[in-house]
Amino acid sequence: MRLYARTPGRLSRQVLADLIAAALILAAVKLALTVRDAVLRLAEPGRRAESAGDGLADSLGDASDVASKVPLVGDQLKKPLRSAADAGTGMADAGRSLQDTVEQVATLTAVALIAIPVVFVLLLWLPARLRWIRRSAVTRRLAAEPGGADLLALRVLTGPQRDLAALPAPPDGLAAAWRRGDDQVIADLAAIGLRQAGLHR
């Protein structure tokens, strides 16, 4: 299986198209990662809330333990401090939840920013490359078969006529020369067919 043409013009176009496709995909990935990093910075308030909530819960939990040892009123002092510690834990949980949400949004945004351009590039670039690979394989197989040169010559005669102007035309015309089996005309036409497919210089 041949991936690239042998004719310089078509080879240059194929390499250029491949480089552009790769550059666009790379740019999409880089942009997506940059946007993801920017979105993840929005989680900073959540990290602060988590840290503050955990610190508050620990401090108030320690205070409630100390307050519970006060004679006569220890249990009464412990309850509000324990409630405040629970509120601190709730604030820390809210901070963690915010961070999780921001991470999910950042990941989904990055996936979308990568997937949409990559699918678009692949839809524009890949079918043309696969068509050429398939067509070149068929043309090479046809050229290698007995009578394949005749079929390539016929393909050239029935296709666009722009490449036929350079051929020296017999007095009765190229089509008549092909019909009577003129070996030189058939070889010249088959060579044009291979060159049109990008298989020979």
Rank of each mutant, 00 (worst) to 15 (best):
2 R>S: 08
4 Y>N: 02
6 R>G: 01
6 R>S: 04
6 R>F: 07
7 T>P: 00
9 G>Q: 15
10 R>N: 11
11 L>F: 13
13 R>A: 14
14 Q>Y: 09
15 V>M: 02
20 I>K: 12
21 A>L: 09
22 A>W: 06
24 L>T: 03
29 V>W: 11
30 K>V: 13
31 L>F: 07
32 A>D: 06
32 A>H: 12
32 A>L: 03
34 T>Q: 12
34 T>N: 11
35 V>C: 02
38 A>D: 11
38 A>Q: 08
41 R>H: 12
42 L>E: 06
46 G>C: 08
47 R>Y: 05
48 R>A: 10
50 E>V: 09
51 S>G: 15
52 A>Y: 10
54 D>E: 11
57 A>Y: 03
61 G>M: 09
64 S>Q: 04
66 V>L: 14
68 S>I: 02
69 K>R: 08
71 P>D: 03
72 L>Q: 10
73 V>H: 03
74 G>S: 05
77 L>K: 02
77 L>P: 03
79 K>W: 08
80 P>A: 05
80 P>W: 05
80 P>S: 05
82 R>M: 13
82 R>H: 14
83 S>P: 05
89 T>D: 13
89 T>M: 11
90 G>P: 12
91 M>R: 15
91 M>T: 15
91 M>C: 08
93 D>E: 14
93 D>P: 02
93 D>M: 04
94 A>P: 00
97 S>D: 14
97 S>F: 05
99 Q>G: 15
100 D>E: 12
100 D>R: 12
101 T>M: 11
103 E>I: 01
105 V>P: 00
107 T>K: 15
109 T>H: 11
113 L>K: 00
120 F>Y: 04
120 F>L: 11
122 L>A: 08
130 L>Y: 07
131 R>A: 15
132 W>T: 04
132 W>F: 00
133 I>L: 13
133 I>R: 08
133 I>H: 01
134 R>L: 02
135 R>G: 07
139 T>L: 01
141 R>W: 08
145 E>T: 02
147 G>R: 08
148 G>E: 01
151 L>H: 02
152 L>G: 01
152 L>R: 01
155 R>N: 12
155 R>E: 10
157 L>I: 11
158 T>S: 14
159 G>F: 02
164 L>E: 07
164 L>N: 06
165 A>T: 13
165 A>G: 06
165 A>R: 14
166 A>S: 09
167 L>P: 05
167 L>M: 11
168 P>S: 04
168 P>H: 06
168 P>N: 05
174 L>I: 05
177 A>G: 04
177 A>F: 00
178 W>C: 03
178 W>S: 00
179 R>M: 08
179 R>D: 04
180 R>N: 05
180 R>F: 06
181 G>W: 14
182 D>E: 12
182 D>F: 01
187 A>N: 09
187 A>R: 14
187 A>K: 13
188 D>N: 06
194 L>M: 15
194 L>F: 02
198 G>K: 00
200 H>K: 12
